[in-house]
């Protein structure tokens, strides 16, 4: 009984689908795993919330596309894609491009800040050395010796 019910509901899941069952199951498992991993990383504070947004949207988007064939058809028609499998890939790719772009922008910003801070450290270090050598003239040291 149980098995029959499960089988019929599974049949419903795969009814008039352009994706093969295996493809569909794989895509759903993949997107659910991704979602769980991203949420877990946020929970452990290993991933900042701001970066999790695009990842979660990607995982949910992929899940919906794999699960709801009608959505995938709309997506297919939007981009003129013939193969539903490719539509799935294309959807994932689209999000990955966005994520990569977001990272590049972040990196650029961090590079600016890193430069600014490094310059500031160099200036402050010199100022400290100068002040120190005024107080105790023999203590001026080579900053390179103090590197960790």
């Amino acid at each position: 009984m149980m098995l029959a019910a499960l089988a019929s509901s599974l049949e419903g899941l795969f009814a008039d689908d352009g994706l093969r069952p295996r493809q569909k199951v794989a895509a759903i498992i993949f997107s659910v795993t991704l979602l769980v991993v991203v949420v877990e990383l946020v929970r452990r504070r290993k991933l900042r919330e701001e970066y999790s947004v695009l990842w979660i949207v990607t995982a949910i988007g992929l899940l919906l596309l794999a699960w709801q064939y009608r959505l995938l058809t709309v997506f297919q028609q939007l981009f003129g894609i013939v193969e539903p499998q490719f539509a799935l890939f294309f959807g994932a790719l689209l999000f990955l491009v966005l994520i990569a772009l977001q990272f590049s922008v972040r990196l650029s910003k961090l590079t600016y800040r890193n430069k600014f801070l490094t310059q500031r450290v160099a200036l402050l270090h010199q100022e400290i050395e100068e002040l120190r050598s005024r107080i105790e003239p023999d203590s001026a040291s080579d900053p390179r010796e103090e590197e960790p």
Partner: peptide
């Protein structure tokens, strides 16, 4: 002497001097 702890590039070094 103004020391960068690592290499930032020619332009960044100039700018440290400007600062």
């Amino acid at each position: 002497v103004l020391s960068h702890p690592f290499n930032l590039g020619y332009g960044a070094a100039l700018q440290t001097g400007y600062h």
